[in-house]
Design a protein around this nucleic acid. Structure first.
Lengths: 222, 222
DNA sequence: AGTCACGTTGGACCGACGGTCCACTGTGTC
DNA sequence: GACACAGTGGACCGTCGGTCCAACGTGACT
């Protein structure tokens, strides 16, 4: 018979949602996305399968929570004092660094539109756009342009990082790719793009894209 | 003993890579991404499992080929005669329609950076940017801005379509989502964004984003 | 016309996955 | 000291992608 008295939450050590999420992040960072299974997780936590499902509803929930944890660290520390454009650049760079350090976050951001991590980013963008004087549906449009560009880029970086783990491996991979690409399509544009592929810097290119979008927004707010 | 003579490719009917890809597209369109398994595929084709792997290296290969088939129809029919900006808008709209009709393509485009379908899009964008007078690393930057925005948007649409299959269901879902969002964060920006969420038109917003990026590119080419 | 090599087929089989279920345990409450 | 129950962990389930291999039948060669 359930008494109407307060139920104490029992002991606070041992398993908890927070500990599970942290363990998941550790596995994801160390061995990548495909390494995170319920089995590896339970073995890291030295527990059984069922216990985990008392704190987390499933893999989707866990991945969303892990991504939110990483993104939260970025958005919280984002500077508000700078002017809105700088703040948006800073936010973007922060997300880039986070995805660079945790490639699985990039894939996760593109996977599910209304997960906490994504909403967090939308909100930060929205606040800064307001500071920029953009409002109404123009703000939605501008926010979507920035957010979807960021998510798209993040997904591409994540997929790239999944293939190559260090810089020389990456360069070799891109060169081979460009060569194969040029071979099967000798178009001039393809040749030029292939030539630049191996040389380009992901970070610089990503930030250049942010600047392009900010310029485009600026031309409409006047 | 392998004779040095030409080997004829045997009969041309029966199973083929093309037939397998078409069957996969039919399944993906009818029942979504998670419905495409090697088992459903073999049952649709009335064959066994091993036969499929003689024509397709695995699920990744199959999904990439299916996406390429859809994207190819878009890029081939894209108009070249219009001015570059219109051509880029037309290409974007074509991709939007394709993703709208085949949501799984959106998820696939964001999954793997150097699959054929993605390269096809990159190339079309590159060609039109050249027509716009953008060259060198500026073209890479501008192309990345457009492409990653498109891929990010496509992934978000795909995920949205995965949840809701008709318009009223979609509206109800978005309204519930906006309400939940506003409830847990009463910020003014969040409230306004939530209010606009249910009303906005994906297609218009997507095209507005393209225009923003094109404006941004235009300010740099002068 | 007879033989035979080999590309093709399809089903048995494998290990691993996410998730459910339930008997047990150890703790805080009465 | 007895009890109730949140928390735990391992057995178990169905399904997945992928491999393997014996059987088949076509087209090429003699």
């Amino acid at each position: 018979m359930t008494t109407p008295t307060e139920r104490t939450p029992r002991r606070s050590d041992a398993l908890s949602r927070e500990r599970i999420v942290q363990a998941a992040i550790k596995i994801l960072d160390a061995d990548g996305e495909q390494a995170l299974t319920v089995r590896t997780l339970t073995s890291h936590l030295a527990t059984g399968r069922g216990a985990i499902y008392h704190h987390v509803s499933g893999m989707d929930d866990l991945l969303a929570a892990a991504a939110d944890d990483v993104v939260c660290a970025v958005t919280e520390h984002a500077a508000d004092d700078a002017d809105p454009s700088s703040a948006l650049r800073g936010l973007s760079l922060g997300i880039f660094k986070a995805v660079d350090a945790h490639p699985w976050v990039g894939a996760q951001l593109a996977r599910e539109p209304f997960q906490p991590a994504v909403l967090r980013i939308w909100k930060r963008i929205g606040v800064q756009l307001q500071g920029l004087g953009v409002a109404g549906s123009a703000r939605s449009d501008a926010g979507a342009a920035l957010a979807n560009y960021i998510f798209g880029s993040a997904a591409q970086f994540a997929a790239g990082a999944r293939r190559t783990r260090n810089e020389t491996e990456r360069r070799r991979y891109l060169e081979a790719l460009a060569a194969a690409w040029i071979e099967q399509d000798g178009d001039q544009v393809v040749c030029e793009a292939g030539a630049e592929l191996a040389d380009h810097d992901d970070r610089e290119q990503f930030l250049a894209g942010i600047d392009i979008i900010l310029s485009g927004i600026a031309t409409r707010v006047k």
